[in-house]
Design a protein around this nucleic acid. Sequence first.
DNA 1: TATTGTTATACTCTATAACTATA
DNA 2: TATAGTTATAGAGTATAACAATA
Lengths: 152, 152
Amino acid sequence: MIRFEEALDRLLRLTVVLNDDMTRSLAREGLTVSRTQLLWVLRRHGEPLTHRQLADALDVTARTVTGLVDGLEADGFVVRRPHPTDRRAMLVAFTERGADLMRTMRAQQDHFARLLFEDMPADRFETFVAAMDDVLTRLESVGVPEPETEKP
Amino acid sequence: MIRFEEALDRLLRLTVVLNDDMTRSLAREGLTVSRTQLLWVLRRHGEPLTHRQLADALDVTARTVTGLVDGLEADGFVVRRPHPTDRRAMLVAFTERGADLMRTMRAQQDHFARLLFEDMPADRFETFVAAMDDVLTRLESVGVPEPETEKP
DNA sequence: TATTGTTATACTCTATAACTATA
DNA sequence: TATAGTTATAGAGTATAACAATA
């Protein structure tokens, strides 16, 4: 009988490995995790978005969004433009390069997912996914808040 | 049939949720994730350790270790003392408070693990753990380096 | 000459607070 | 008065590089 602490240990180890790998992969494209999360929000919610909408979706302050957009704009992934009706607000949208990057990342993620799971027996795979859902549900019911799903 | 990308999505979501929760929990004790990882290394490898050993285990530079130990020492979790034979080196060891913290954290983790898994059917739990091992193995065989297991 | 740890410097991410422009 | 976004400031974590002391 495998004990619960060992399962948690594996889960945390998986967390660390995946996070480190993501950080390294993104660094090769000149990106950070935080900046990439902003790009994902932009894709998920549909562009353009204001700084305020980005700050709410990312659960960070307006100041942080300013910094992230500064970096992404300097690297040519997004552009700022004035809001057509609210002259206080800024809209953020993809550049061509940013849109290309999103397509590339999507393809890479699909490839990575196949790499991880395609050799797993089908019944094990199904149970694994169901168990992850169990854990996510359990976490929520225990009061661990789930973020707004700003993932690939 | 659940598709691979959805499985990866769940895995990454789990990663984010667990990481955010850990960050919040540690913040309540006045700790950060990085400083806590140093404490885990100290427990795992056995104290005392030199800065160099800590840097290698954490895969960060010596400069970073200096900063982390500065913070942990200021908060009273560890102490620095001279190496008995190598007068260039510093040894880092737990204080009483640091050792207490480690014991408390271990208990909290056991409790958290039970909370997550104790209601899961036994066969699903076993399959889940086996599948995580599969994924970890797969990651390694694909060239994603696993860190030195500096986990709780 | 090589290693240990520090100081110096810089960049990213994050926060709070003060401020400007606009609603 | 309230909101959107900026600047100012600060702290954590990270890196590289220069340096001192010691091996």
